[in-house]
Structures are given as C-alpha cells and as structure tokens.
Design a binder for these strands. Sequence first.
DNA 1: CTCTGCATAGACAACGTTGTCAACGACGGG
DNA 2: CCCGTCGTTGACAACGTTGTCTATGCAGAG
Lengths: 356, 356
Amino acid sequence: MAKSTTPTKAAAVRQRGVTMSDVAKYAGVSRTAVSFVLSNRENASISEETRTRINDAVQALGYRPNAGARALASQRSDWYGIVTEIVTAPFAVDIIKGAQDQAWLDRRFLLIAPSDQADAVGPNQGLEDAAIEKLLEQRVEGLLYAATYHRAVHVPESAHEVPTVLINCFDADGKLPSIVPDERAGGRIAVERLLQAGHSRIGVINLDPHIPAAVGRLKGAREALAGAGLELDPELVVSGHATADGGYEAACEILDRYPKQDRPTALFCLNDRMAMGAYDAIKERGLTIPGDIAVIGFDNQELIAAYLRPKLTTVALPFEKMGALGVQTLAALTAGQPITADQQLVDCPLLERSSV
Amino acid sequence: MAKSTTPTKAAAVRQRGVTMSDVAKYAGVSRTAVSFVLSNRENASISEETRTRINDAVQALGYRPNAGARALASQRSDWYGIVTEIVTAPFAVDIIKGAQDQAWLDRRFLLIAPSDQADAVGPNQGLEDAAIEKLLEQRVEGLLYAATYHRAVHVPESAHEVPTVLINCFDADGKLPSIVPDERAGGRIAVERLLQAGHSRIGVINLDPHIPAAVGRLKGAREALAGAGLELDPELVVSGHATADGGYEAACEILDRYPKQDRPTALFCLNDRMAMGAYDAIKERGLTIPGDIAVIGFDNQELIAAYLRPKLTTVALPFEKMGALGVQTLAALTAGQPITADQQLVDCPLLERSSV
DNA sequence: CTCTGCATAGACAACGTTGTCAACGACGGG
DNA sequence: CCCGTCGTTGACAACGTTGTCTATGCAGAG
C-alpha cells in the first residue's frame, strides 16, 4: 500500500502503460526480481523484504501485467473458448454460467463466441467456422462446444487443433470427449417416482422419438417399469410437438381414448412445455392434479415448472453442472491428459413439487 | 486456395505457430509485403499478383495471425469487456446476445466476465472488482456494464480507466453514459392501449414504488390518462411483491374492494409475473379475460407471456437492442468521441396478444 | 583469509507482430 | 539518357513479457 496516497489517486495519475521496468525502478530492484516475484517461481530466492517492496510498488503504481505480452512470451494463454448457439438461443444459459464459474475458479478466462448451428447445415454455417477461427487467433488453449439440446453434432475441422470438449451434445464422428445428461437415469427416476406413488398405468407424452433425449428417457422409463415387473404399453406412448400445444393434443388423445377405469392415472411428459399443455387438457376435463392424474415433467424450465398450478414435479437437466464439468475436463486435457472420445453422463435430479 | 490439397490436410500438417515470415517465405515475398496485404493498409502499393500469391500462401499454410502479438505491437486490441450479473442471474440474457451480435458485426470480441453485484454492497463485492481487473489486464478497449433490472449502480473505480457504458442501469455518481429502457413511454403506450380498447377505470398493480421501473411506468400511465382527460385514482394503485403471488394478492385486493359497477375493467400489471398471478385471481372469481377484465403486462417474459391463456399482451423490455446500442456507443467513445453522462432511452414496444 | 552459497543484477534472446525508413530494380515518359 | 514512379525489399526498433545465463557483492563457515 502506498502510505497516504489512495490507490485511486495513483491510478488516476498513471498514464497508459506501467511496465515491469517501471515497477522495478520504483522499487529499486531489477526487472528480474520483479518478474520472479510476480510469477512467484520456485527456484528463485528472494528476500522477504524485496518481495514486499516489489508488491508495494505494484500497488502504488497500479501496475497491471499485460496479458497479451505474457501470452506471447510464455506461449501459454489463460483462455478457453466456448462456441455455442446458446448465445443465439438462450435456452440453456446455465451451461455458460457453470462453465464461467468454474473457469473463474481456475483463474482462467472464457471467450464466448456465437454459433448458429441451429440445424447442422444452414445458411450460417459460416458464422460458426468464423467464430472458431477468431477464437484460435486469440490462442485459446482449448474449446468448449455447447448445444441447446442434446444431440449429435458435426464439429468443424479447426476445432480439432486444440483440445475440445462437447457439452450437451456429442461428436457424430466419435472422436471428441463429451458431456451429456444421463437421460436414461432421468427417465428411470421419473417413472420410479410415479410407481412409488402407486401408479401402475402410466401414459407417456413423447418427443420426436428419434432424438437422444426421447430415446434415453423412454429407455429409462421402461427400466423403471421392468423393475416393478411391469411393461410399457406401446399404446400409452403418444408423440407430439415439443410445445405446449403438442402436449395438449397428445394428452387429449390419451385421456379420451379409454373409459375411465382403463385411463392412465399418471402422465410422464418428456418435457415441461408439453406438461404445461397436458395440464390444460386435464383441467379441461374436470380432472384434478395430482388427485385424478399425476403429472411429471422433464427439463425443469423454471419459469414454467415453478409457476404452474399445482407446481410441476420434474426432472432437471443439469446444465450448470455440465458446464462446470466441461471446463474441468478441458483443464485435464490441456494439462496433457490423452484425448479420448469418452462420454461423461451427468445425473438429472428429480425436483419434487406438487404434481405427483 | 491450395490447388489440390484440401485445407484440412494442410491444417493437420501444420504444427504450432505458422508465422508471418513462414507465409512470406512460402509466397516468395518479403514479410513487409505480407504485413501490408493482411492489414490492407492504404499507402501500400502491391500488385494484384503478389496479393493473390500471399493470400494463397495464407490459405495453404493455414496461417492465423496471433491476436496477442498484434495487440502488443499495435497498442490496440479488438476487445471489449462486458461485466454483468447476467452471467449469474440470467434474466436478461438478451443484453448479451444483442451486444455479442453487434460486436461480431464490428469485428470485435466480447470478453464476458461475471459479477455478483446483486445488491450493490455484498460479500462478493470483490468478484466484480477482480473481474474488471482481469478484463483490463487483457487490455480491453472499453467496458460494458450491464444489470438485470433497471437501477442505479456504483461502478468500481477501475472501470473509469477505459470508456465505459452502462446498460439497463445508470451511474449513481452521474459520470458515465448509460442506456436504459424508456419506462415512461412504455407505461404510456400500455395504458393508451387500454384506453383505446374503451377502458377508463384502470387498476394498476405496482412494483416497489421506489425503483426506476415503477416510477417511470407509473408516470407514463398518468400521462396517458391525462391525454384522455382522466386522472389516476390513487386507490386503484396497489403495490405488491414482484412475483406471481404478489400479483395475485394485489389483484384480489383491487377486485374485491369495489361493487361490480365500480370495479376497474382493466389491470395494468407492472410486470408479467404479477400478471400471471392476476390471471389466477381473475379466473378464480369467474371473470373472463379480456371480456370482463383486460390485462396488460410489462417485460415480455416469453415463457410466461406467450403461454398464458389467453396469451398476455405486454410491453417488451428491449434487452437485445440495448445490448447492441451499448456496443455502438462504446465504439463511438473508443473512436474518440468525448465521454458524457448521456442517458439513451430505448423504446419498449407493445406486443399485442390476446388479453386486451 | 579464503571458500561457499545466497540474494540480486544485468544482459540478451526469444515471442509474433506493427510501423517506419532507406534503398533498389524496372519501366515508361520526356 | 535521365528522372520519377511503382512495386518491392531488408533492416531495425518498438511492444511487454518470460526465461536463461553470467556476473557480482556480501555474509558466514571453515
């Protein structure tokens, strides 16, 4: 600390560019000494006194190391890049949050670049390549590639030049490590919850049956039923658009198809928006939730799940955790761990609210 | 373009660090020439042939300029920093999206750093300072400072070292330029819409009356009424928590206080979550929307407004636009425009849906 | 009183650019 | 045939670090 001058004042005085030499001069020591102290290298022997003298000088002058110069000289940067369509379609923002927090803990910086992958091949294919190119120009040490919904992706060639980890998606070419939600376990836990509540005839409002989310969640549902000695009645599985309207229609179909005694007593909706529609269908028929029909969702889209009446019990997608794990994995890779195409599954926790 | 070798192959061959000299050697020209072409400086005279030869070499070698070195040498960087609590509380993500898109257009990079401002002074005050510090170490040319909800903020000292623009908040010390939503015009347009639909007795579900959003929106509401020769009945303004429950309670109070003929025929809810609660209160009383009571919201929180039944007419907060405008303003400042504490107001457009 | 080792200094070469300059060969016009 | 211009070159000094190496002053041990 400079004795009486406030740091503010010193900062104001400073004109562009206090360098290491300035610090050295001010402290009356050599540049070498300053460099040693600042990057506290081990093999250096510096007396406690010089050390504090240098630190004081840093404070007094408001010295700020030039990250670019440092990266240039040391051939390392503290940066990771994340390229994601989440910037353009902010459904899974929590991935960024998780990654950002973890990066911050690791004292690293996240450069966020936009992507318009949206659907694999598109008019904006160029944007994504350009984004990665820009990131590589900044000499990021690794890349994170995140999608808004769980699916296979084709990663641009250039991403292979540095360690790359996929989040909420996986490599169609099977070369890169990825981190995805454990859809199967999620499906299982959802249906187990329904079974535990005494339901044995369970309707499923399915997504497009080809996407990984649907495949996994359904598989989990079957496992749960099998565990109770039951089977999934294919007639009770209805697919619909992944929207409230889609859910509404699917629910109508299931509810109207059977006489009361054969009607399912619970609905497993493969996402919360569809559950929202299902709510309407159920209420419209004068039925109550969860009294007549229990409903369980998937995704935990806060604004929906927490505000529906009754509040929706659902399985959460662990976006934040995936983001954090992505950074950790990347850290391991950049530290030299061999790159494999491992897929890490992250748990989807059940959030109990009031619809079961 | 390399004639037959695919760019892929070339890229794979390349081992860390193709430099400008490599390009020069490959193209059989001088480094100077390459530098001229790549930064296409005006005063250079380079023949078309050399130019293409150099570009080809760049392609063939997969040369990628080192952004750090460039910044070091030219004393300029292509980076802006944005520090925001939006990373931690992703309500207004669209600010980031807008800023990112605009930055991309300007061929600039946005470094996004987290903040926990949450409430001005807190245990995490340090995080924000550290974030700005980190950003300055990267030698960003300007800073954007964004909040999740419109309010006054205290910006850390160090932010004054480079041009700084506030988004969705303004400087409590009145020194920095800011970009905020035009709450007043928004309030006016909302109430005008109700008036236009024939309502003259309008209830207002207010936020905490001290926050800028409430002040501005109410003022706008009064102006609209005045324009129609009416006044705002203070009894019809009820404040509540900014939640669905808060809106529910406030709506109950307004609806139950009067006999049918004196009851307001429309509710202006100062945010969508409160409107969501108001919907419940209205429906509970057997009233219809918009038949018996028209409802208009504010914020346009998509997941709510677009999924309520009937869909909610609301005034949108122009997050994306503010983000973009922030970057544009910053560009002007870094280009040398003098820094003033101007506050730019951005329009809040009315989104017509079905609740009026 | 010399030897050893510690704390520091000073020099220098990288790192990959930008930017400025002086200079050169070739070519066309006068 | 000389001169100016065009297209280009090569040299060099920045930029702010890291990293490595040799030198040096000084204290304490033998």
